[in-house]
Design a protein around this nucleic acid. Structure first.
Length: 554
RNA sequence: CGGGGCGUAGCGCAGACCGGUAGCGCACUCGCUUGGGGUGCGAGUGGUCGUGGGUUCAAAUCCCGCCGCCCCGACCA
């Protein structure tokens, strides 16, 4: 392929819009261009990388017995209303109306559409198991798209759905996909880790996320070095710790003035206590009903856990007016003592606190020397927070370490959640109607490519892992007065291509420095430099991009 | 959705405070030059200054609205 015939608009300067490495380098290397926030064009070079990732996925999934199909991007609201997700998905669902004012959406995922297909076409246990996948553009109106291909509103995703006769079969399908994912990300040259993920509101028995380890990752992962446990910090389960009875304090609670001190930071500094001694009280509305959540000042509420605990479809922070009405105090002074109108849930760690500080439910007042269980009794204690460094591993109780990762894949046991709602059944051997047991499996194709850049680059540019590089070899034809260089380059290109090697030939009339720099930026694994000097010696040079090792070839 | 920032040529930016009709570097075109890590010289092309309105003799510049983009936050108790 001649570089002069390909649109590869490399940039010398970093575009101002790009913050992280992968976004910056993919823009600079002329692989992507932005059309709107979170919506990109894949230029020829970028598309080749995307296609490489897709081919790896196809090969591994076909190997594992999955079959490729292609579903529509637009789907009617009725399907989504059947499962309740038309409302549940909220603003993230791109919605549109057709000319008859009928509601449609652009698919963020396709459980409804595939389940609709399967319930109509699959009737017998003989047709199971089945696993369908597609590679397709997805739409999610993200609250905050960012980082180029990392979090787009329109993005390419591989989604797969397995259908089995029973739980055991579904687990087997799940395991196969898990193995396929391991192989896929391995072949993409990624340093990744499969981590346990919570099954969340969707229910089911298993879920794993595939995380590429990178400091720029948006997800926190809790890992245990002792037992190899790894889980998303949002989802890592935290156990209740045994109560230390000796720690009970005889001190009576007392109300102290804290004028204008609202935040955890302000109050703890003002009173001279540690944030872990402060019990903050947050008021949420769960499906409209207010609920007070109590947890330590140094901990963060995990809204997924909270939502799950309350069984709520919608969970939002209560507004200031609601907080004032319920607590009788301005925002910043809410506390669990004397709160009667709302149910109170507290994190497990709250139970451990002795002589804590809580809001006074009165302006400019906090209680000190508060002991949970004595001075207030929550309706229940539960695991309500994100894991932090040092928390006990749920498996072996050793301290957890927090690292960052990019979620490139997710596998999920769905059970019968969708098949029940959509009445997807089959007849078993005894002729009985049974619900099909499902699993779903996603891979972010563009995100995987971006993650690869995050892990494979240097100061000069990208260092593509060979399996997903846009080309295998980049031939740089340098200055050519005699005409011999061009001829030699064309000849070499032909030979390599005949051998099945993908070649990009830089035939542009550019200075050597420009070519070297562009080649390093684009990051094709091998560069072959052909120049007049070398040719007179009967030599060309082969440089490995990653190591910069140069070999002279006769 | 809240906060901050930005929007001037394809890219990176100056000009704005102090109003007088737009400039620099790179890129692009042509010529010469150079030819192994972003050559040098010369001549050019390219801009409704995001958009709508207002103030003014005059607006990129001052005022108001809107749109777009980026970053942070959405943990405030």
């Amino acid at each position: 392929m001649l570089q002069s015939r390909l649109l590869i608009p490399t940039l010398r300067d970093d575009p101002g819009e790009a913050e992280i490495v992968s976004h910056r380098l993919m823009l600079r290397a002329g692989m992507i261009r932005k059309v709107a926030a979170g919506i990109y064009i894949y230029l020829p070079l970028g598309l080749r990388v995307i296609r490489k990732v897709e081919q790896i996925i196809r090969r591994e999934l076909n190997n594992s017995g999955a079959q490729e199909l292609l579903m529509p991007i637009a789907s009617p609201a009725e399907l989504w209303q059947e499962t309740g997700r038309w409302d549940f998905y909220g603003k993230e669902l791109f919605r549109l109306k057709d000319r008859h004012e009928r509601d449609f959406c652009l698919g963020p995922t396709h459980e409804e559409v595939i389940t609709d297909l399967v319930r109509r076409e699959v009737r017998s246990y003989r047709q199971l198991p089945a696993n369908f996948y597609q590679i397709q553009t997805k739409f999610r109106d993200e609250i905050r798209p960012r980082f180029g291909l990392m979090r787009g509103r329109e993005f390419i995703m591989k989604d797969a759905y397995s259908f089995d006769a029973d739980e055991a079969g579904a687990m087997e399908s799940y395991r196969k996909m898990y193995d396929a994912y391991m192989a896929i990300f391995m072949r993409c040259g990624l340093n990744f880790r499969a981590v346990e993920a919570d099954t969340g509101l969707i229910g089911g028995t298993s879920s794993h996320e595939f995380m590429v380890l990178a400091d720029t990752g948006e997800e926190g992962i809790a890992v245990c070095d002792a037992c190899n446990y790894a889980a998303n910090v949002e989802r890592a389960e935290l156990k209740e710790l045994p109560l230390d009875m000796h720690a009970i304090s005889p001190q009576e609670k007392r109300l102290v003035p804290t004028p204008g001190q609202k935040t955890v930071e302000e109050v703890t500094q003002f009173l001279g206590v540690e944030p872990s001694q402060l019990l903050k009280t947050l008021v949420y509305r769960a499906d409209g009903k207010p609920v007070a959540v109590v947890l330590r000042g140094d901990h963060a509420v995990n809204e997924i856990k909270l939502k799950k605990l309350l069984g709520a479809a919608e969970l939002v922070m209560a507004d200031a007016a609601t907080v004032e009405k319920l607590t009788g105090a301005p925002v910043g002074f809410a506390g669990p003592i004397g709160l009667s109108e709302v149910s109170i849930v507290a994190d497990f760690t709250v139970k451990q606190v002795r002589d804590g500080v809580v809001g006074g439910n009165a302006a400019d007042r906090h209680w000190m020397n508060v002991t949970p269980g004595r001075d207030f009794v929550p309706d229940r204690y539960a695991d309500l927070r994100n894991t932090v460094s040092g928390d006990a591993c749920p498996r072996c109780s050793q301290p957890l370490r927090i690292v960052r990762g990019i979620e490139v894949g997710h596998v999920f046991m769905l059970g019968t959640k969708y098949s029940e709602k959509m009445r997807a059944t089959y007849l078993d051997q005894q002729g009985r109607d049974k619900f099909i047991v499902m699993g779903c499996y996603g891979i972010g194709v563009g995100r995987s490519a971006a993650a690869a850049v995050e892990q494979n680059h240097d100061a000069k540019g990208i260092q593509w892992p060979a399996p997903i590089a846009p080309f295998h070899v980049h031939i740089l034809a340098l200055a050519d007065k005699s005409g011999k260089v061009a001829a030699a380059a064309a000849d070499l290109e032909r030979q390599l291509e005949e051998a099945g090697i993908e070649v990009l030939l830089d035939d542009r009339d550019e200075r050597p420095g420009v070519k070297f720099n562009d080649a390093d930026l684009i990051g094709i694994p091998y560069q072959i430099v052909i120049g007049e000097k070398g040719l007179t010696l009967g030599q060309v040079e082969l440089k490995e991009r990653r190591t910069s090792i140069v070999t002279k070839l006769a």
